[in-house]
Design a protein around this nucleic acid. Structure first.
Lengths: 358, 358
DNA sequence: CTGAAAGCGCTTACAG
DNA sequence: CTGAAAGCGCTTACAG
């Protein structure tokens, strides 16, 4: 009788392993084994426990209890780039491609992904229920501290944080160099550059100027790209200081007109953002400039839109899927201090052609 | 002396709250309060404990222990549509838009998202460390059972699983009806339809046939769309049975040619997939058919590519971001049995025009 | 094959 | 303001 009362009460609350054990008249260990180590339990007994569990509406061992004991959570936290919210980073096609790569490795390992915002000062990193972290592109190295303190493996992307930190990088300098070399190889010598702005704000114009300080344009990886471009320009006898640069957010709509105004004679544009490269193509077309006959455009990153725009965009594949996959593999293996550098690839499509012969 | 030895040993392993408490010579409760309830601890004492924690490399309370006691995990699991892996679902732009909506609500509530694969038989749902679930479009209702057993709130998308289950739906029938009505309103009367195939396989052609069984074409929501289309056709004095239907995966490359071959006289195509709508536009252009002068195309779902293709795609906005946001709000609120129906919107762009006058 | 006991790391009333 | 005690739900050696 009391059994019955107890029973009904528990059903209202939440059935625990011990409740099942009591009703099935076995010990907690045996009940636990029924779910975690079925082979250890005599079939007949196992069946009885399973039946009782079902009748009581027991959902199986509560992961909250299991995890404390077992230690392993089986998921890794992915921290978005910059100080954006999760909903914002999901608007970046390159980040989503990167996530696909992480998911590839996690799917294989049976692990799950937790999406974490990169909000400084939040207790997010120190309290996330994960076995490790992947930090997408960030220069906020202090954000790494909580991860280090927790002694969890982590990897950082596109930034070398020292020999003891897992890092997966793309050789951005080589990528930009290849992009510009492709254009100079086609005979172009009058350029405009669209740089990448992290965070909100209006586009900024950096007009041509000798000894111009390019260290202000973007974060380290963006500066690497500009350095690579500068090398390719130098190889063709050109000086990047003579080229107008506009720095803008990927979605800014005023940047493309600004750049085309700032570089009126340009026959080629190199954009560090694929979105802006597409915007440049559209703005050029709006002005009656034919792409690629009158103007060649090269972007950076191979987003799905690059293939669909008209003409399709010549761009640099920065290998985000590979990047994510390898970063996840480092973390899932519990490794530390591994480094991997990916080589970007130039993908020639329809937005580039030989310089117009005048 | 023993203290010191103990200390160094612990540092190697993992510093726990009790280690900090011992070294700082306070009780576990006080040490705990320093992190969870700082105001309750005298500033001077708090400072001492914090210093000791720092010196010992204590990362703060281990979430594994905290969670068991506190009960709340602060994250919700999102289960992808169909039986795809996580990396696959991230390739779907509509799913990513949906995720953005979920993230919007989670960001606001300070919760995180866990990406869960929809693998039947896996213990994923029953062992995920989450406070609730969102099931994207699925008809595998048995997958809901583990969630129900765990007594966690959950929401299901685009499927009515009964009055006690949270559901967020888009009125797909109305959307398809609006799409077709737009075309018949432009005078079109010769059509082809591209239907949606869930799961792998070659495209299937359903040639015109009286009393053709459309219940085989896709899952319930796809059939709803066909029913809506049929209504709009009937309103214009047409019969959907006279129209060729090709059912294909969104990325299949042979589907667009197949449909244009199967509906040679069509002046308008309605596609249940935006990707395939774009594929139809490209295939038509390849054949020298002008879109929209000779052929109008309407899609379903407003993906970023729809805006970039040429001409931009007239399509139905199925409101995925709203869908995700509302589903997450239901779950975060711990509600049960709430229903919300979203009205899709026709977005007229450049891929539709009046029927050619011959 | 089964069960009694210890403990994963933490928090939370409660008593002082 | 501080601490002793109980317990969150589970698993894991270990003894029988």
């Amino acid at each position: 009788m009391t059994q019955i009362f107890f029973w009904r009460f528990e059903v209202q609350m939440a059935v625990r392993l011990i409740d099942v054990a009591r009703v099935a008249k076995v010990s907690r260990s045996t009940a636990s084994n029924v779910f975690a180590n079925p082979v250890r339990v005599r079939p007949k007994l196992r069946e009885r426990v399973e039946e009782v569990a079902k009748a009581m509406g027991y959902a199986g061992p509560d992961p909250k209890g299991r995890i404390l004991r077992a230690g392993k959570i089986n998921s890794i936290g992915v921290v978005g780039p910059g100080r954006w919210s999760v909903s914002d980073i999901l608007r970046s096609p390159v980040f989503v491609q990167f996530l696909q790569g992480v998911a590839l490795a996690c799917d294989e390992a049976g692990a799950t992904i937790v999406l974490l915002p990169d909000v400084p000062g939040s207790r997010g990193i120190s309290s996330a229920l994960v076995d490790g972290f992947i930090f997408s592109l960030t220069e906020q190295l202090e954000q790494l501290e909580p991860a280090r303190l927790r002694r969890l493996p982590f990897a950082i992307v596109d930034f070398d944080a020292g020999p003891d930190v897992n890092a997966v990088m793309v050789d951005a300098r080589a990528g930009a160099k290849a992009a510009v070399a492709h254009l100079t190889g086609l005979g172009h010598c009058r350029f405009g550059i669209m740089a990448f702005q992290r965070g909100a704000g209006p586009p900024m114009l950096f007009p041509p100027a000798a000894g111009r300080d390019l260290a202000k344009v973007g974060i380290l990886i963006d500066q690497e790209k500009l350095a690579g471009a500068a090398e390719a320009f130098a190889d063709a006898g050109l000086n990047i200081d003579d080229i107008a640069i506009v720095q803008a957010e990927p979605w800014d709509k005023t940047a493309a007109p600004l750049l085309l105004d700032a570089a009126p004679g340009a026959t080629a544009i190199f954009s560090l953002s694929a979105m802006q490269a597409i915007a440049v193509i559209r703005e050029a077309q709006r002005r009656g400039i034919n792409v690629p006959a009158d103007l060649s455009v090269v972007g950076f990153n191979d987003i799905p839109e690059a293939l669909l725009c008209n003409p399709p965009l010549t761009t640099i594949d920065s290998r985000p899927i590979e990047k994510g996959r390898i970063a996840a593999e480092f973390v899932l293996a519990g490794d530390h201090g591994r480094h991997h550098v990916l080589t970007p690839r130039l993908i020639v499509r329809g937005s580039t052609a030989r310089v117009p012969s005048r």
